[in-house]
Design a protein around this nucleic acid. Structure first.
Length: 802
DNA sequence: AGCACGCCGACT
DNA sequence: GTCGGCGTGCTC
């Protein structure tokens, strides 16, 4: 008897354990751990992960499992263990962690088909099922009691494969190619016979006489200015034929990657890479913090570390923040490692993600470059894990399971005995503190390559501008600087951390501010659509003509968003061509890249944008970076706001003067004396680190203390408050006397989407049993959570306190 | 989650 | 006396 222990896809605390199922005889030795199966669960069928196969069960009335969903495991032993560990660390359910490791497609409902790949005669049992076809439904295989062992064998031999068909169109894997169906001379004869009116048809035929190779239909249509109906007529006449070609969706297929080879390392790079190479060679799971200023050549260090790993036949994972934002980064990896690289990032369609994942799963690639979830790449022989821009907040998932990719990386590193490299120009305070303590090994690269200097930074006190009678959002210096760049045909990057047009609209008469009815937040005016939008829920209404309260028509716009800046630029510098990049202009797939390409081609003088333009851009002609208002970020209710400001300023400054032309940075602020602005303008990371550590120490914040944040929300304000209060009490009672429990406190935004939000914060040095306490609290509120619309979010070492 | 079971009030 | 409201508990 074989028994599968299964974690079912029912994310509740009551079902957060394995359920035993009998493996029916035809599936014996087919079902192995790491596979997904379909099992009867009460009256219905659910998906589940086999986490163990055993020869007995404590349970006596076992049901047999229904069906296997994979013929090869989708999770390795290591990933199964990792999922268990993660669920303990983040106090989440096992199933959520397993799901988080797989591409979306494998979570959704889908259909499977079996495809014969060769003309080779398949074994008896299989051949007859196909009955002359090349593709059959998997359903049919099950219905006709197909032989799993045989199928599995043939998959291994590469004679057949399983295709996952998802309902969405995005996952179409075939492209239609058109090719000639007859010999050249027959085509020529056919043209002669055609009516004189069939101009388009002749044109198409001539194309194929010129070159008989099949071409993509899409290409043919655009090149010859015709439509598919014309082509279809020729296909009907048997002159041409349609060919469905299977193609991997390659998101970079239209990009040529110039192959590069190792660049010679300068002395500081050599000093940094040596210990990493040693760790690779000796299989040591050491964590390195590579602190290198922008332009110090960190990427080349990564590349050559990976080369060392590949030579040993091992694999590498590279995490980059939101990779779509750095096409240039992808280019460098693809350029060096070519087809050995898979790329995983959030801008890919589900189908594309699945294809990239499949390449990893089938071991067709050795290197993965991707965003946070790429840390789960199903490699079995990892030689190095690199996390670039280590301080980026996107490495922490802001929904369950709230894992941090860095911690997962360390765990995987210790399993594979491989080094971890954390790279950053502005490491997170916690990381740098660890490096100083010797927990991580610190590697410093303080100098830019080619003796380049960081661009000088000018801080402009906007209060002075106001005294001088300048009421615009541009200081005189900035405006002059922009104008001079345009004259010199150089480019400008302008940064403002706020999208929309105005941050709020207010009635001048009675002072009423337009607010979202569902959230406790002012509405933002979007000029292009003439709408008032809430940035926290999807509420939006047309802009009001008069005050809702006093009917006055004197409604004014306050606060500045990217749209307003764009408008003001047009007014002050009409000759400037501006590209605006924010969530609103990059929502469409691929728009991100196309906007950047446009800017790179010099189709605009100014790139204006939010957060998203701060990272990784590298354009030769950018010689001026302007930060319009840094204050909004500095005064957020978050203990990390100084650090985030410092990081951001350092990052945007790095965008200027990266090549031959000298750069300049202008920062506009109302608090020029603030230490993060001052120190960022002088590129003084060390001093900033020391000063910020002082502040953190004083307020008992990380890295001196750990934090745990509990967010409670409920439609009823009293309920939310009362639950939070009880949780605070429980924590106070069950945690050690050294822990500080703060709360209940209303969240910075008390109401979002008609839910009231309260929080409780725990500061502690060492609380080994806090996860158990949290789990018990969640269990205690189980009923309220599942039946009464209560949510309790527990976030260990949170990145955001909102 | 989704469903059966079971205990109390309104009703042909 | 029954029908069905929802609170409670279980799913191998």
């Amino acid at each position: 008897m074989q028994v599968a222990k299964v974690i079912v896809d029912v994310p509740t605390s009551q079902t957060n354990h394995t359920f035993d199922y009998l493996i029916p005889e035809p599936l014996e030795n087919i079902v192995i751990k790491g596979m997904r199966v379909s099992v009867p669960f009460g009256p219905r069928k659910v998906m589940g992960f086999v986490v163990e196969v055993s020869d007995h069960s404590e349970f006596d009335k076992l049901k047999p499992l229904d069906e296997v969903m994979d013929l090869t495991p989708v999770l390795t032993d290591e990933l199964l263990q990792l999922g268990k560990w993660m669920s303990e660390q983040t106090v989440s359910f096992y199933i959520q962690n397993f799901q988080a490791m797989l591409p979306q497609i494998l979570k959704a409902k889908y259909k499977k088909e079996i495809e014969a790949l060769t003309d080779v005669e398949l074994p008896e049992g299989l051949q007859q099922l196909f009955a002359g076809r090349t593709i059959m439904d998997f359903e049919e295989f099950i219905e006709r009691n197909g032989n799993y062992a045989l199928l599995l064998e043939e998959i291994k031999n590469g004679h057949v494969q399983i295709n996952y068909i998802v309902k969405s169109k995005e996952t179409k894997k075939t492209k239609v190619f058109i090719g000639p169906n007859k010999e050249q001379y027959l085509l020529e004869e056919a043209i002669e016979d055609m009516s004189n009116r069939a101009k388009k048809q002749k044109k198409i035929m001539e194309w194929f006489i010129q070159q008989p190779e099949p071409v993509e239909q899409q290409l043919l249509l655009t090149k010859l200015q015709t439509t598919s109906s014309t082509i279809n007529q020729l296909v009907d006449k048997k002159l041409l034929k349609k060919i469905d070609k299977k193609v991997y969706r390659d998101p970079f297929q239209n990009t040529e990657f110039e192959r590069t080879t190792s660049l010679p390392l300068n002395s500081q790079q050599q000093a940094a890479i040596k210990p990493i190479w040693d760790a690779i060679d000796s299989k040591k799971d050491e964590v390195f913090l590579l602190h290198g200023v922008t332009g110090s050549g960190k990427t080349e260090v990564y590349l050559q570390a990976i080369e060392r790993v590949l030579v040993k036949g091992e694999e590498a994972i590279v995490l980059v923040p939101e990779i779509a934002l750095t096409p240039q980064m992808v280019q460098r990896f693809k350029g060096r490692f070519g087809s050995e690289v898979a790329v995983l990032h959030s801008a890919l369609s589900p189908g594309e993600k699945f294809d990239e994942w499949t390449k990893i799963h089938k071991k067709e690639v050795k290197v993965v470059v991707g965003a946070r979830s790429a840390i789960f790449a199903p490699f079995e022989n990892i030689g190095i894990i690199i996390i670039d821009e280590e301080h980026e907040t996107s490495y922490k998932q802001d929904e369950q399971p709230r894992y941090h990719a860095r911690e997962v990386a360390k765990k995987r590193g210790s399993y594979h005995n491989c080094p971890i490299v954390l790279g950053s120009a502005t490491p997170m305070l916690e990381s740098y503190a660890r490096a100083k303590k010797g927990v991580y090994r610190l590697l410093e690269m303080p100098d830019r390559m080619n003796e380049g200097e960081m661009p000088p930074v000018e801080i402009i006190d906007m209060r002075d501008e106001l005294y001088a009678g300048n009421r615009t959002m541009f200081s005189r210096n900035l405006l002059d600087a922009i104008k001079s760049r345009i004259e010199r045909k150089e480019q400008v990057v302008l940064f403002l951390n706020r999208r929309g047009h105005s941050t709020f609209v207010m009635c001048r008469e009675c002072g009423d501010v337009m607010k979202c009815p569902a959230c406790d937040i002012a509405l933002t005016y979007h000029k292009s659509s003439h709408q008032l939008k809430c940035h926290y829920c999807d509420y939006q209404i047309p802009m009001v003509k008069e005050c809702q309260v006093c009917k006055s028509k004197t409604i004014r716009y306050f606060g500045t968003g990217t749209q307003k800046v764009e408008e003001a630029l047009r007014e002050h510098i009409p000759e400037a061509k501006v590209i605006r990049m924010d969530v609103d202009t990059t929502r469409r797939k691929g728009s991100h890249k196309s906007l950047l390409d446009k800017f790179g081609n010099g189709e605009a003088n100014i790139l204006l944008g939010t957060q998203m333009i701060a990272k990784g851009l590298d354009f030769e002609r950018v010689t001026l970076v302007g930060v319009l208002a840094v204050d909004t970020m500095l005064h957020l209710p978050d203990f990390r706001s100084s650090e985030k400001t410092f990081q951001l300023l350092t990052q945007v400054s790095g965008r200027a003067g990266r090549h031959k032309l000298p750069g300049e940075v202008i920062i506009q602020t109302y608090t020029p004396e603030h230490y993060s602005i001052q120190l960022a303008s002088q590129y003084q990371y060390q001093q900033f680190f020391q000063q910020e550590m002082e502040t953190r120490k004083g307020f008992h914040y990380p890295p001196y203390y750990f934090l745990t944040l509990i967010n409670v929300s409920h439609p009823n304000q009293l309920k939310a408050q009362e639950v939070t209060k009880t949780i605070c009490k429980l924590l106070f009672k069950h945690l050690s006397a050294q822990a500080t429990v703060l709360g209940p406190t209303p969240s910075p935004i008390v109401r979002i989407n008609n839910r009231y939000r309260y929080q409780c914060m725990v500061k502690y040095k060492d609380e080994p049993n806090q996860r158990e306490v949290m789990r018990r609290i969640l269990k205690h509120y189980h009923d309220d959570i599942y039946r009464h619309d209560l949510t309790i979010q527990v976030d260990f070492e949170p990145y955001s306190l909102m």
